[in-house]
Amino acid sequence: MRLRREPNIADPDALYAALMEAHRGLDEEASRRLDAKLVLLLANHIGDEAVLREALHLARGTIPGQDKAPATD
């Protein structure tokens, strides 16, 4: 299985609004914990390690086999 990269959310704006609402009133540390918990919950739901590793590489901007992420401006 490969990571699905085409749009697949019926209402992305509503989802974004719900995500922002979940962060409302949280300090930076609590907000980061919420993000980490959400990532782990969704990773568990996906359950396919190859898909998760592909997503990690894409999110970080690396290619498997490279030692470091590319420099950013």
Rank of each mutant, 00 (worst) to 15 (best):
E54Y: 01
A22S: 15
D48Y: 01
P12L: 05
H23Q: 15
E49N: 09
A43L: 00
P64I: 02
A18L: 13
A14W: 00
K68R: 13
L52W: 06
L15Q: 12
E28C: 00
A43P: 02
L56Q: 11
A14M: 13
L19V: 10
K37V: 12
P12Q: 08
H57Y: 14
N8A: 13
A50K: 15
A55C: 07
P12E: 14
L34P: 07
K68W: 08
N44I: 04
G65F: 13
L58V: 03
R2W: 02
A30G: 05
V39I: 13
L41I: 11
D73G: 14
E28M: 09
V51S: 06
L40V: 02
A22R: 05
D73L: 13
I9T: 15
D73Q: 12
A69W: 05
L56R: 01
G47T: 07
L41Y: 07
L58Q: 11
D27M: 05
G65T: 14
H57V: 00
R24C: 07
A71Y: 04
G61W: 02
P70L: 04
Y16N: 09
R2M: 05
D27H: 14
V51E: 01
A59S: 15
M1F: 09
R4K: 11
E54I: 04
I9Q: 09
G61Q: 07
P12C: 14
I46T: 07
R32G: 04
L34A: 05
A30D: 06
E54G: 02
P70H: 08
V39P: 01
T62W: 00
L52E: 09
G65D: 09
L34I: 02
L58A: 08
R33W: 02
L26R: 12
G61E: 04
H23R: 15
A55G: 07
G25P: 03
L56S: 03
L38E: 04
A43M: 06
D13T: 12
A30R: 13
H45I: 03
D11T: 10
I9N: 03
A30N: 07
A14P: 09
P7A: 12
G47Y: 06
D11R: 13
D67T: 14
A50P: 00
L40D: 12
L42P: 00
L19D: 07
G65N: 13
A69R: 13
D67C: 03
E49I: 05
L34S: 05
E6I: 02
K37L: 14
A18K: 15
L3Y: 00
M1S: 12
I63D: 03
K68Q: 15
R33C: 06
L34N: 02
R60G: 09
D67N: 05
A50R: 15
L58Y: 05
T72V: 11
E49M: 08
E6W: 06
R4P: 02
G61M: 02
I46R: 10
L34Q: 01
R32W: 04
L15K: 08
P12M: 15
K68I: 02
R33F: 00
A59M: 12
R53F: 03
R32Y: 10
H23T: 09
E28S: 10
A18F: 01
P12V: 09
K37A: 09
L52H: 03
R33E: 09
L15C: 12
A69D: 10
S31F: 00
S31H: 01
A30P: 05
R4A: 01
T72P: 01
I9Y: 07
D35L: 08
R24D: 13
A17T: 12
A10T: 12
L40R: 11
G25T: 10
D11L: 07
R53I: 01
